[in-house]
Design a protein around this nucleic acid. Structure first.
Lengths: 189, 189
DNA sequence: TTTTTAAACTAACACTTGTTAGTTAACTTG
DNA sequence: CAAGTTAACTAACAAGTGTTAGTTTAAAAA
C-alpha cells in the first residue's frame, strides 16, 4: 500500500533493535548498520535517538487511550467491555510487537515526554479499574480484591508482546477469545 | 542478623539501580555514587559490571528451579501444585523485587551465562506446562488452550515485581490466596 | 537543461564508558 | 608493636557514545 518513508523505516528498525537489547544498549551505529548506512546519515531523517523512542512509545500509548475511551463510552455489559479491552490489546500488540517492548521496558527513558506518558498510563489504569468496579456493583464480576484482578489481567495483556511473535499462523480472533476465556473464567473445572 | 559484606551491599544497590533504569543505562559511576564512593573503588569488591548482573539473575533463577523441582516431586493435586507455584513467585519476588526486574528485563545481557539462564527458564516453563497438562488429564483443569493458560498465569507471576512494592503493609499469604483465586477461578460471577 | 531535493558520505567533536595501576589510610590479627 | 588486610583514593587509558558540519551523488522537478 503506502510506501514507507525512510523515517518510518528507521523507527521500525529501531523498535526491533530496542526490543532485542533495550533502548540504552542500542547505539546509533547499531541502528545505522541495521539500515545499511552510516550513523551520521540517520540524522538526515530523524532528530535524535530520544525522538525515535518518543515516536515509538507515545503513538502506541495514545492508541490505547483512544481505544479505551471508545470502550468506556459504549453501553456494553462490564464483561463485554473487558472482552473488548482484551481485543484492543491483542490488536495493537499483534500489529506492533516491537513497539510494545519499548513501551513496557523503556518508558523511563522518555525524558521530556515522561510525565505525559505516565499520565496516559495512569488514566488508562483508572478506566480499567472502573470497569471492574462497575462489574462488581452490577453483580457481573465476583467481589474480590479489585487491585489483584486489575493487575493480574493487565500484566497478562502487557506481556502479550513476548509470546505473540512465537505463535506462527496466529488467529487474532481466536487468541482474543481464548484469552478472555482464561482471564475471565479461570482454569478451574 | 548477618552483617552484609561490602560486596553484597554493592550488588543490592546495583539491583536497585538496574530496576530503575535498566542494566545498560546504569554506569559504574552511578553505582559508585549511590554507594558513596568512587567508581574505581568498586573493583576492590567486584570483578566487573557483568559479574554483578550474573550474581543477581542466576541466583534467583536457581531459586525458582529448586522451588519448582520440589513442587513437581510432591504428590499434591494439580491445582494445589499451582497454588504452591503462586506462593513460590510471591515469596521470591517479595524478598527481591529489585533482582526480579533484572531477571525479567536484563537477562539478554548475560553473555557467557546466557545459555545457562535460557536453559533454566526453558526447563521451568516445561515443568509448569506439565502441571497444567496433568491437571487437564485428571479433570481438575478445564481443557482449553494450554499455552494460553501457561503464559497468562506466568505473565502475571513474572510481573509481580512491578506492583508488590506499591502495596504497603502487604500480607504475603493473603496476596498468594487472592492471586490463586483470580488466576484459577477467574473473575466471573 | 538547469535546479532542487533526498539521501548518502567522510571527518571530527566533546564527552562518557568500563576498567587498571598504583597509592594511602585505618583497622585487625599475630 | 609488626604485619597483614580492607577499603578507600587519584590518575589515566582506550574504546565507544550521540551528534554536527560540510560534501557528494543521483534522481526528480522546473
Amino acid at each position: 500500500m503506502k510506501p514507507e518513508t525512510r523515517k518510518e523505516e528507521i523507527i521500525k528498525t529501531a523498535a526491533k533493535l530496542f526490543k532485542e537489547k533495550g533502548y540504552s544498549a542500542v547505539t546509533m551505529r547499531d541502528l545505522a548498520k541495521a539500515m545499511g548506512i552510516k550513523a551520521a546519515s540517520l540524522y538526515n531523517h530523524i532528530n535524535s535517538k530520544q525522538d525515535i523512542l518518543k515516536s515509538i512509545i507515545i503513538s502506541i500509548a495514545e492508541e490505547f487511550t483512544n481505544g479505551m475511551n471508545e470502550i468506556k463510552s459504549s453501553n456494553l455489559s462490564s464483561i463485554n467491555k473487558l472482552k473488548q479491552v482484551v481485543k484492543l490489546h491483542v490488536n495493537i500488540t499483534s500489529q506492533n510487537t516491537y513497539g510494545m517492548a519499548s513501551l513496557n521496558n523503556d518508558w523511563m527513558h522518555l525524558e521530556d515526554k515522561l510525565d505525559y506518558y505516565l499520565e496516559l498510563r495512569s488514566n488508562y489504569e483508572d478506566q480499567f479499574r472502573s470497569i471492574l468496579i462497575e462489574g462488581i456493583n452490577n453483580k457481573e464480576i465476583v467481589d474480590s480484591n479489585v487491585e489483584v484482578m486489575l493487575f493480574s489481567i493487565l500484566s497478562t495483556l502487557r506481556s502479550l508482546y513476548l509470546w505473540i511473535p512465537k505463535k506462527e499462523a496466529l488467529n487474532i480472533d481466536e487468541l482474543s477469545k481464548n484469552l478472555s476465556q482464561v482471564l475471565i473464567n479461570g482454569i478451574n473445572k
